[in-house]
Design a protein around this nucleic acid. Sequence first.
DNA 1: GTCCAGGGATTCA
DNA 2: TGAATCCATGGA
Length: 287
Amino acid sequence: MISEMNETLLIARDYDLAATLTSGQAFRWIPRDGRWESILHGRYVSLQQLPEGIEARTLEPQIDWDWLREYLQIETDLDLVLETFPKDAPMQTAVRACRGLRLLRQEPWECLASFILSSTKQIVQIQQIVKALCECYGGEIAGSAEMHCTFPLPSRLATLSESNLRSCKMGFRAPYLLETARIIDSGKLDLEALRKLSTDEARLALMGLPGVGEKIANCVLLFAYGFQDAFPVDVWVQKAIAQLYFPKRRPTRKRLKRFVETHFGPNAGYAQQYLFHYMRTRVRNAQ
DNA sequence: GTCCAGGGATTCA
DNA sequence: TGAATCCATGGA
C-alpha cells in the first residue's frame, strides 16, 4: 500500500544540514523556529535536523520524496567521498572542522541564474537579490507561516526589460540574466541536455552564455549537475590554497589552475566546498 | 593586462 | 558614525 504523507524522515548520518544550506551553494533557505524553509520544484518544504537524519514537511501529501532525496543527495556515502581527498594537513583540518558538509543537487535554471547574480556580491547580498527577483517575478505559493515565491522561469524573465531586472538591485548583472533567460527560453541551449555531456563539454556550453565565465560555469556544473570534478575558484578558495599550500610565494594563475586540477582527486569539487566553508567560517573568525 | 560595472554588508578609524 | 573596503566576476 502506498500512503501519501506530508511528512517524512530521511535517514542520514554525517549530514550537517545548517552548514550545507548556508555554504553558498543555494541562496533561498530561510531559518525559522529551528527549521529551514524553501521552495523546491515549485513546492514549499520545511526541513529539520534530527539526530537520525532530516525531517521534512510539505503542505500537500507527497506520493514520493525522490525529488528531495535527490536535492539533498541523501544517499551519498560521505565516508567514500572523504576517502578520496588528498591526505595533506590543510585538507584534513578542513574536513575535521566541517564534517557533515554536503553538496546539493539543485535545479539547473535556478542555480545558473543565481550564480550569474553572484558576481562580486557577498552571500548575504546574493540572497537579497534572489529574494527580490522571486518576489517581483516568481509565482506566489503558500507557506506554513507566510507567503513564499517560486523562482521565475526563463520564459517569464524573457518578457521583461533590463530596467525591470535592475529594480531587483542586480546592477550590471541585469543584462546578463536577461539575455541568458532569452537564450534558454528560445531553446538555443537546453539545460537538461548538458547532463549527457562531459564536464569539459558542459562547461564550454555554459560559458557561451553572457555573464558566465569559468568560475560561474564550474559552480553550476558542481551544484546543479553533480560534475564532482568541477572546481570553482573564487577569492576564498584562492586565498585558502595560497595560504595553505603555497605559504611562501603566491602562485601564478597558471600554476594554481594546474594545482587544483591535479591535486584534489575525483571529488575535487567536494574538497573545494570544504576548503571554502572552512575559510569562511573558521579562519576568518580566528584572525 | 587593465579597467569598469550596483550597492549593501562589514570592517576600520 | 562616517569612510573605506569587500564581494562564490565577466566582458570590453
